[in-house]
């Protein structure tokens, strides 16, 4: 029997498990298996190995599920507690933005008056006005960064001990 036939049988065996094969191919494979003990044995062993994978039991550590449930509940509580704070932060940002837009002409006048009084170049007090507007955004970004760095520290347990 030529090596090509065994190779084809092996390919069809694999294909049957991955994508399926046609009826004609199945018939050819069946006929080959009846003639070739080597291929039949290999197919049987592969079947056995895959079946073993399905049925094998890896001992589950006692208490792992309850420990995980406890941690998940704790984290859920933490997230619930943090949610109103986060909402308050966004609300404060929104309100300050609206207030900023509404008061922009007055603030502009104040900066202009102060700039002229102090003898500053126009560009400087205009820049000052621009920076004044970014303060709420900076504040929000700082809070979010602080939160994420705290979260990063909490997740460090995974990389520790490696």
């Amino acid at each position: 029997m030529s090596a090509d036939l065994h190779t084809r049988a092996n390919q069809l065996n694999a294909q049957e498990r991955v994508e399926g094969i046609s009826e004609a191919e199945r018939e050819w494979l069946g006929a080959h298996m009846q003639e070739c003990m080597l291929c039949a044995d290999l197919a049987r062993q592969t079947d056995q190995a895959l079946r073993w994978m399905r049925t094998t039991a890896i001992p589950f550590p006692s208490g792992l599920a309850s420990r995980t449930q406890f941690r998940v509940r704790l984290r859920a509580q933490e997230l619930r507690e943090r949610e109103p704070k986060r909402r308050a932060l966004w609300l404060a940002c929104g309100v300050s933005w609206i207030f900023g837009v509404a008061s922009a002409p007055y603030v502009w006048n104040v900066f202009q008056w102060f700039g002229q009084r102090a003898g500053l170049p126009k560009l400087v007090w205009e820049l000052g006005f621009g920076l004044w507007w970014t303060i709420p955004a900076f504040f929000a970004a700082a809070v979010l960064l602080m939160e994420s760095s705290r979260k990063g520290e909490q997740a460090d347990w995974i990389s520790q001990g490696s």
Binding site: A14, Q15, R17
Partner: peptide, 16 residues
Amino acid sequence: KSRLYRGLEALRGALQ
């Protein structure tokens, strides 16, 4: 699919 084929091939080789 190709990883599955290679995996099955590797398993067959290891079993042999």
